[in-house]
């Protein structure tokens, strides 16, 4: 119904037809939505992709039912510290992490379902002043944290009983690491973006810091989302959360940048600008999957970009229930999760 009431044509060449509403999850608790994500859940021999929703004091797991409906399976109740982020673990079943804190992450917890005991559990993974966290393949979690002048970049392995005793540390750069991305096609490589706009590369096996490369002063506050290695170059998808509409393309929302790790030289490959009509500086909060990016703009509109074309390909304006607050890609097919502040999550097929 909501989809039918949206204007069919938003801008020249941009139609909302490229996003089709598939289903809606409505949380009756009335709690304010903080984040949304997905996790694989396997119980009684059945493996399903479920939706995870977070509000400040609890996290809920939703499984698909018949006729595009969703049912809440379990709610983990958290303590006094508010939930601020869901940290999905790629290619992992029955496990998801959450970050809790006030303005910064102060704690990471593991939420899990144990098929052996058929019970839902939670355990503490890490505490500290945590600046960035990312779930890695093979049930691992990387985080950067600060204690005075010291920065620690740590990888922990996650088990059903919580974190394993042995963590691995990566050599920290001097600058604070604000985001991480695994490198596709290169199993032991990890990249990060820093507070002073550099890209750093680590060897995950040895913990070595291999290279630090500057992104460029003309593009402040870059956040890395994805990276892949090809033909001797490292391609990194960066977002610029404080993008500004500009005819000269000087302040794009997303960029694909090619780095030569041997020389630390870089070259922009494709830039994706803000959709027309979004004037003024925008704060982008988004997600990247393969070559697609999605972000909520300051106006409460969700924009989708094709990063290879360098174009915004779909817009989802605020619905009847209000502005969009969150957006994430599901790991399978082109499915976009879109959350409103009242806890309603809509699933769109792109």
């Amino acid at each position: 119904d909501v989809a039918e009431q949206l204007p069919p044509v938003l801008h020249d060449g941009l139609t909302e037809e490229s996003l089709q509403l598939v289903s809606e999850l409505k949380d009756s608790s009335g709690s304010c939505a903080v984040d949304v994500s997905t996790m694989w859940w396997e119980a009684a021999g059945c493996r399903e992709l479920c939706v995870v929703t977070a509000c400040e004091s609890s996290v809920s797991l939703w499984k698909p039912l018949a006729s595009d409906r969703w049912g809440k399976v379990h709610t983990w109740q958290l303590g006094q510290i508010p939930v601020i982020q869901i940290v999905p673990l790629p290619d992992t079943c029955n496990l998801v992490c959450i970050a809790l804190g006030e303005l910064e992450i102060g704690e990471i917890r593991l939420l899990l379902y144990s098929s052996e005991s058929d019970s839902f559990k939670q355990s503490l993974v890490k505490t500290g002043t945590i600046k960035a966290v990312l779930g890695l393949k093979d049930r691992r979690l990387v985080s950067s944290s600060r204690s005075g002048q010291e920065q620690q970049v740590e990888i922990v392995s996650l088990l059903e009983t919580g974190r394993s005793k042995d963590g691995q540390t990566l050599m920290p750069p001097e600058e604070t690491v604000l985001a991480f991305a695994e490198v596709e096609g290169m199993r032991d490589a990890l990249v990060g973006t820093t507070a002073l706009n550099s890209i750093v590369i680590w060897n995950l096996k040895t913990g070595q810091l291999l290279k630090k490369m500057h992104v460029g002063y003309s593009y402040p506050a870059s956040i890395c989302h994805r990276a892949y290695s090809d033909s001797g170059l490292l391609f990194v998808v960066l977002s610029h959360p404080h993008a500004k509409e500009s005819e000269s393309c000087g302040n794009p929302a997303f960029r694909v940048v090619a780095f030569n790790p041997k020389t630390a030289r870089s070259r922009g490959v494709v830039s994706s600008s803000l959709p027309p009509g979004h004037t003024g500086r925008q704060y982008l909060e988004g997600d990247v999957k393969d070559t697609l990016a999605a972000a909520v703009l300051t106006s409460g509109t969700i924009a989708v970009w094709d990063l290879l074309l360098g174009q915004c390909t779909a817009l989802l304006p605020p619905g009847l229930a209000g502005s969009w607050a969150l957006t994430r890609w599901a790991p399978t097919s082109a499915c976009l999760l879109a959350g409103q502040q009242d806890g309603t999550v809509c699933l769109y097929r792109y």
Binding site: M171, N203, K262
Partner: peptide, 23 residues
């Protein structure tokens, strides 16, 4: 991207940087 923009490219950059970087 041409090689002249980015300098000499090595297809084996990860192993080469790992050999050069401090342990």
């Amino acid at each position: 991207c041409s090689e002249s923009d980015l300098g000499p490219i090595s297809f084996n950059w990860f192993d080469e940087l790992s050999a050069e970087a401090p342990p």
